[in-house]
Design a protein around this nucleic acid. Sequence first.
DNA 1: CCGTTACCGGGACGTCCGTGCGGGTAGCCA
DNA 2: TGGCTACCCGCACGGACGTCCCGGTAACGG
Lengths: 126, 126
Amino acid sequence: MSEPLHAHPVDPERVAHARARLPSREDAAQLTSVLSLMADPTRARVLFALDMVEELCVGDLALALESNEDAVGYALRLLRTAGLVTNRKQGRVVYYRLADGFPEPLRDHCLRQLIALTETSTPEDD
Amino acid sequence: MSEPLHAHPVDPERVAHARARLPSREDAAQLTSVLSLMADPTRARVLFALDMVEELCVGDLALALESNEDAVGYALRLLRTAGLVTNRKQGRVVYYRLADGFPEPLRDHCLRQLIALTETSTPEDD
DNA sequence: CCGTTACCGGGACGTCCGTGCGGGTAGCCA
DNA sequence: TGGCTACCCGCACGGACGTCCCGGTAACGG
């Protein structure tokens, strides 16, 4: 059989310690769903752009990212659905910006920190 | 034609501003590749666990996560390949821990901040 | 009023990713 | 030495994801 019956922990203390304060699968899923949203080049760059210039319409966003409207539109749809960005419609132009409730830790600690990361270089990926 | 020729930016200033300091696609890709590694419930929880108890072997890790060895093994393989964790083999047991070069910003600002996020609650996901 | 622009939405397709399964190796124990 | 344990690896399947393509709607302009 290949199914694990690793019935005897090697270090039961640590197992208990870890298991006790580990996020539940649901919490982890919720967390990773947010991370997944940022874990895409297009969406991440959309967020970066909006973090910098506050507000942009779809076409301009596509221009700034040097991408096409399809990709940007799809990215915005997901971000909007998740509540990370909001839109304001003026005439036939739709302006997007980071949502008011955009998680500050994400913005301050992740978005910006991670940009710094890429500037120095991430860990070796060999 | 469906292809956008949105030739005239609505707000050229902001477009230029954003485009100028936007991470390149490669940088973004590199960044998101790291994020993608964390954007998975199993891998994220593995990292959380290792951040707490410093060192765990594969079987114990599976126990702590209440997962199976297959999932954990696969997660560890990717994390190891990316250089985010290191392993130490003692007898037939392999102990894993966060790599020395584990990006501190990731650890301090993301891992822990994000755990706090899930405890209070993430943004509305309606 | 007709055409164009800016954007949204759905469907189809190719691709990647995580999981489960089976087999393989190295170390322990009797 | 033989069996068992802890772990790694490769493969095939299913599902999710992103992109392309097309049609649809609402606003502006002549």
